[in-house]
Simulated assay, not measured.
Amino acid sequence: RFHDEWDVRWFEEPVGSADLEGLRMLRDRGPARLEVTAGEYAFTAQDFANLTDGPAVDCLQADVTRCGGITGVLEVAGLSAT
């Protein structure tokens, strides 16, 4: 089990950001300390809100060049804080 041997704790976008069910399943059924992250290709605040609903991920990855600049990143930060 590689996550134990190598202390892996981060699984970046294991499935597409739009696959909320797949992200939730991996988050819920994966090793307890393994964090699932996605959102690098999200564009709107609603895209990120969908990822936090459920929640589907442990960490949001906002790319400033895709999500509306600094203002968009700040909106994502606000979603992350709730």
Score class of each variant (00 low, 15 high):
33 R>S: 02
53 D>H: 06
19 D>L: 00
68 G>P: 10
58 D>S: 03
27 R>C: 00
59 C>Q: 04
55 P>H: 01
62 A>P: 12
53 D>V: 06
59 C>I: 14
28 D>W: 02
65 T>I: 14
71 T>P: 13
39 G>I: 01
36 V>W: 01
4 D>W: 09
77 A>I: 13
67 C>G: 13
60 L>R: 08
57 V>I: 06
30 G>H: 08
35 E>F: 13
13 E>W: 10
34 L>W: 02
22 G>F: 01
52 T>G: 05
13 E>Q: 12
65 T>K: 12
71 T>R: 11
32 A>C: 04
29 R>Q: 14
36 V>G: 02
6 W>K: 06
7 D>E: 05
70 I>N: 07
37 T>D: 03
32 A>P: 10
63 D>Q: 14
51 L>K: 01
22 G>Q: 01
32 A>R: 05
63 D>R: 15
48 F>I: 09
16 G>P: 15
78 G>W: 02
42 A>N: 07
11 F>G: 07
32 A>Y: 03
27 R>D: 00
53 D>K: 06
49 A>M: 05
33 R>M: 01
56 A>N: 00
65 T>S: 15
1 R>Y: 14
77 A>M: 15
29 R>Y: 10
27 R>S: 01
40 E>N: 02
42 A>H: 05
78 G>F: 05
21 E>I: 04
43 F>C: 15
22 G>E: 00
10 W>N: 06
37 T>E: 07
30 G>M: 11
3 H>C: 12
63 D>Y: 13
35 E>R: 15
12 E>S: 02
67 C>Y: 11
34 L>K: 01
61 Q>P: 08
47 D>L: 04
22 G>M: 00
9 R>N: 03
34 L>I: 03
45 A>E: 12
19 D>F: 04
29 R>C: 12
25 M>H: 10
50 N>T: 04
49 A>N: 04
5 E>N: 09
63 D>F: 12
66 R>C: 14
54 G>P: 00
60 L>A: 07
56 A>T: 00
67 C>I: 13
58 D>I: 07
72 G>S: 04
69 G>R: 05
25 M>T: 13
66 R>S: 15
28 D>Y: 02
7 D>V: 06
69 G>D: 09
26 L>G: 05
12 E>F: 06
